[in-house]
Design a protein around this nucleic acid. Structure first.
Length: 567
RNA sequence: CGGGGUGUAGCUCAGCCUGGCAGAGCGCUUCGUUCGGGACGAAGAGGCCCCCAGUUCAAAUCUGGGCACCCCGACCA
């Protein structure tokens, strides 16, 4: 490709409001152009890299035995009503109507659509297992698109769905998908860690996210340096700091005027936070819930939601809590009636805690679970934090932020049941198919490939996703020897199957070199009178900056070697 | 949805407080010089000052309303 004809406009300065390195570089290198919040145009160069990512995914999915299909992006709304997700997706679902006012939705994901296809294609255990995938545009009316290509309203996702005759068989399909993901991210130059994830209200069994660690990420993950345990914050399990030995003495009511927060209360009484029982109020699918947890811990709302089997939980503010008959600041589980009580296991195992007396300005000392109060539900619903002990090995957990690149999930039979995906087993019994789903966001991968591979001068493409293998800078092209050398170089590279972007523009050398660094092809080759005098053309590795003079006929081999050199 | 910020040339921004000719740098066009790290000179083109209403002799500037974009949070199969 000749740059003189390429639709490309690089920017010396990025738009001021781009903050992420990938966002800035995508714009500066002219790979994308914003159309509206969460919507981007791809230029030829940007699209080429996205296509290369797509091809890596396609190759590895095919290698794993998955079969590519295509499903509509436009779905009759009935499809979503059948699974119950028309409501569950809420405002995230883009809705529209056709000319006859029939309701439609733009697919935010494709479990329903693929189930429709599978239900009509799978009849017998002999048809199983099968894994289908597609690479398709998804639409989500996100509350807040952000970070350039990180969170979009329209984006391309590879989504795969496995269908098996039972949970054991699903384990195998899941493992195949998992292994394919490991290869995909490695080839694309995106370092990821698989972390255990919450499988949510949908049920299901295992769920893992492939997370690209980045301080700018939206997700928090906990990592154990001791045993390698990794989980996102919603899912992470841990061993809470042990309680202090409790006092077996009977409860005693004490005045605690003005002590509203756990920190104030502990300070006032000269105790540690973990000697207190904190009251937190939620609304779960409309009904108020009282949560008791040790004062040094926080509630993990995802765990709470799962324990309550609720679709949604939200914290109550003080006014709403008072309306529900609670006394913020002095609320406690003792003697509480008329409200559902959930106790974290941190308060049921500890004796002698301080808890609110449900009377403004008073608390009880020496409150013990079982003796003084009981809860309807007892469960581990505390949020893991940095420094907490790993449940498996006891080492201190670390927290990192990250961006979810891919997700593998043992769905189970939820969609099979609602969408009627069944098969007849060997004994002629109708059984629901056991499903798994596996997604990867393509634009996100592109952004992460840049986040993980750039320097102050621009992008450093991982070889397999670079839009071109070689960036040729031609200087003094009006001189016959340069033009001849360029032609010979082009032919040699083409012969070897290497793609090349050729800067034949009438620009100064400085501009061309700056653009070559910004655009980030793994190998830069300068064809110039100066290099020819030295007996060849100049090869420069983008990542290391090493330069050497190479004879043209040796260029393809040398370029390939540099481009594929491990980091 | 809550909080904060920003909307002026393709990009980065000044001008707004204190109303009075629409500005700079970069980019773009033409000519000349230059030609290995974003060169130099000269001449040009380019504007719905986000939108609507109001105040005023006069609004980019003041007032009200709206919209868009960015950041933080909530949300995120």
């Amino acid at each position: 490709m000749r740059m003189s004809r390429l639709l490309l406009k690089t920017l010396r300065e990025p738009p001021a409001d781009a903050e992420l390195a990938s966002h800035r570089l995508l714009l500066r290198a002219g790979l994308v152009m914003p159309l509206a919040a969460g919507l981007y145009c791809f230029t030829p160069l940007g699209w080429r890299t996205l296509r290369r990512i797509e091809n890596i995914i396609r190759e590895e999915m095919d290698r794993s035995g998955a079969q590519e299909i295509h499903l509509p992006a436009l779905h009759p709304i009935e499809l979503w009503e059948q699974s119950g997700r028309a409501e569950a997706m809420g405002q995230t679902l883009f809705r529209l109507a056709d000319r006859k006012e029939r309701g439609f939705a733009l697919g935010p994901t494709h479990e329903e659509a693929v189930s429709f296809l599978a239900a009509r294609s799978i009849q017998s255990y002999r048809d199983l297992p099968v894994t289908l995938y597609q690479i398709q545009t998804k639409f989500r009316d996100e509350a807040r698109p952000r970070g350039g290509l990180i969170r979009l309203r329209e984006f391309i996702m590879k989504d795969a769905y496995s269908f098996d005759a039972g949970w054991d068989a699903l384990d195998e399909s899941y493992q195949l998908a998992f292994d394919a993901y490991v290869r995909i991210f490695a080839r694309a130059g995106v370092p990821v860690v698989p972390v255990a994830a919450d499988s949510g209200a949908i049920g299901g069994k295992d769920s893992q996210e492939f997370v690209f660690l980045s301080e700018t990420g939206e997700d928090e993950v906990l990592l154990c340096p001791g045993c390698g345990y990794a989980a996102n914050a919603e899912k992470a399990e841990f061993r809470a700091p042990p309680p202090l030995p409790g006092d077996a003495a009977p409860m005693e009511k004490v005045p605690t005027p003005g002590q509203k927060t756990i920190a104030e209360l502990a300070n006032f009484l000269g105790l540690e936070r973990r000697q207190t029982c904190k009251a937190v109020f939620y609304r779960a699918d409309g009904r108020p819930v009282f949560v008791a947890i040790r004062g040094d811990l926080e509630v993990n709302e995802t765990k709470l939601k799962n324990v309550l089997k609720a679709r949604e939980v939200e914290a109550l503010d003080d006014a709403a809590a008072r309306a529900a008959g609670l006394i913020p600041g002095s609320a406690g589980p003792v003697g509480l009636t008329g409200i559902e009580v959930v106790a974290d296991s941190s308060v049921t195992g500890a004796g002698g805690l301080v808890a609110g007396a449900n009377e403004d300005g008073y608390h009880y000392l020496n409150v013990s679970y079982g003796r003084d109060w009981n809860a309807g539900v007892v469960a581990g619903i505390a949020l893991a934090r940095a420094g907490d002990a790993c449940l498996q090995c006891g080492a201190e957990l670390e927290t990192r932020r990250g961006i979810e690149m891919g997700h593998v999930f043992k769905l189970g039979t939820v969609y099979a049941e609602s969408m009627g995906v069944t098969y007849l087993d060997e004994s002629g019994q109708r059984q629901p198919v056991v499903m798994g789903c596996y997604g990867i966001g393509l634009e996100r991968m592109l952004a992460a490939a840049i986040e993980a591979n750039h320097d102050e001068n621009g992008i450093i493409w991982p070889p397999e996703v670079a839009p071109y293998d070689v960036h040729i800078v031609a200087l003094n092209l009006d001189q016959a020897p340069v033009a001849e050398a360029l032609a010979a170089l082009e032919a040699a590279l083409a012969e070897a199957g290497l793609s090349a972007l050729i800067d034949d523009r009438d620009e100064s050398a400085g501009i061309k070199f700056k653009d070559a660094d910004l655009l980030g092809m793994p190998v830069r080759v300068t064809v110039s009178p100066r290099a020819l005098e030295k007996g060849g053309v100049e090869l420069r590795a983008r990542r290391t900056g090493e330069t050497t003079i190479v004879r043209i006929e040796e260029m393809p081999g040398a370029a390939r070697q540099v481009a594929t050199r491990p980091r």
